[in-house]
Design a protein around this nucleic acid. Structure first.
Lengths: 219, 219
DNA sequence: TCAATAGTGTCTCTTAGACAATATTGA
DNA sequence: TCAATATTGTCTAAGAGACACTATTGA
């Protein structure tokens, strides 16, 4: 279905979550050529009739392929050119998305096609197309955002500050100092989250205050 | 020329320079509908036969429309959707480009169509399409880059540190402290530029050392 | 009581901004 | 000499990292 005047427009999605303190990205096994049988980031073709925006394309594709509604989608950039897809001149617009860590299981269970969460910082397989570079770019943007804002959309509806810190550490790939981390929360992010009154996480130790995103959750 | 399966793919370019210590952006007067007669950022349609990448599209469009070769082009992001262009579902990929401040005159002289440099921080006219938002995004990215790197591509081949500071100030829209600025140059950008041995800018005062970008000019 | 983690306080070192001081030219 | 700008140095305040300390639970 080559079209010489108009290129192929697709979206690809780097969907991240954190599981066992490791940053994971979702991969799918391709069913069709090119690269049939290989793994790649999930993606799909823009359908101008159905999708009002590319962001809608992302929502539709992820709904259809892995039955998930995404709380946050943002654009990373385009990967384009005459040769990156053997079929045609192609433009793929890469998007970044986050999945709350307590929804990981639900997603994998509903598999319509083979999907797998892999370690995003050390993927254990080759990726189709230029998706290895895409993954790098998406991680770079995710880290950038994480240093400036907070990955609240990756956490459960209620979470402890330690949980939040662990998620940031997994994203940034390095340990953070507890005291400095909490000081930053108070200084820069007091508006973004709030204590849940009277709600505590209990364990074998001192209970931890539960928090939730405030109305204007940034990321 | 509506095409229901494939959207219209275009590029738009926010070309910046600094003139009289003011950040300027290049606008063109549209010759054709939609928005004929209105001003907008320069742009053009992807031609898959001619352009190997979208970046090539940008080069071709700017060569054809305003007879200029651009030393630096980078992607800002896409503006897309069913309704942003009245003709069709459209994707425009916005690009940021810099023109050395000593080439401003040459460009305006060669006008094939009406072009004009306007104050980028306070444009004096309405822009077609969603180009006002595009301009905002481009400025934001330019400022981000300027805080992390140096806008060397906006300067002449040789320049003084004071000139460099003035350009940064124009981009950031605020005055910078001379001492702190130079300390940052030494600390972070020692690799990006080098003194031109024995070359000085002379005036009514102490001569100023001339500098030039090093091999690996970042921006 | 102890183990374990939550939450806070303090010290130091680095960095950025403000601003002063010195240097070097032409007139 | 002075005017003008280049270039360097110093002081201070804010922020980040390291690390120690206190607090509160279950067992």
């Amino acid at each position: 279905m080559s079209n010489l005047l108009h290129p192929l427009v697709t979206v690809d999605i780097a969907l991240f979550t954190v599981e066992s303190q490791v940053l994971k990205v979702l991969l799918v096994k391709r069913l069709t050529d090119p690269f049939a049988g290989q793994w790649s980031l999930p993606g799909g073709v823009l359908r101008p009739h159905e999708d009002a925006t590319l962001c809608e394309t992302v929502r539709r594709v992820m709904r259809d392929k892995v039955r998930v509604e995404l709380p946050l989608i943002e654009e990373v950039g385009t990967f384009n050119g005459a040769t990156r897809d053997t079929r045609d001149w192609s433009i793929s617009v890469l998007h970044l998305a986050l999945l709350p860590m307590d929804q990981v299981e639900a997603l994998v269970g509903e598999r319509v096609l083979a999907v797998e969460w892999v370690d995003a910082l050390a993927p254990d397989r080759e990726l189709a197309f230029d998706h290895a570079e895409m993954l790098e770019r998406a991680i770079a943007q995710l880290r950038c955002k994480c240093e400036a804002q907070l990955p609240l959309h990756m956490l459960p509806a209620q979470f402890t500050l330690t949980q939040l810190q662990r998620v940031c550490e997994a994203i940034l790939g390095k340990p953070l100092d507890k005291s400095a981390f909490r000081r930053r929360l108070k200084d820069l992010h007091a508006r973004d989250m709030e204590e849940v009154p009277g709600a505590f996480e209990r364990g074998l130790q001192r209970p931890a205050q539960l928090w939730r995103p405030a109305m204007s959750a940034p990321m």
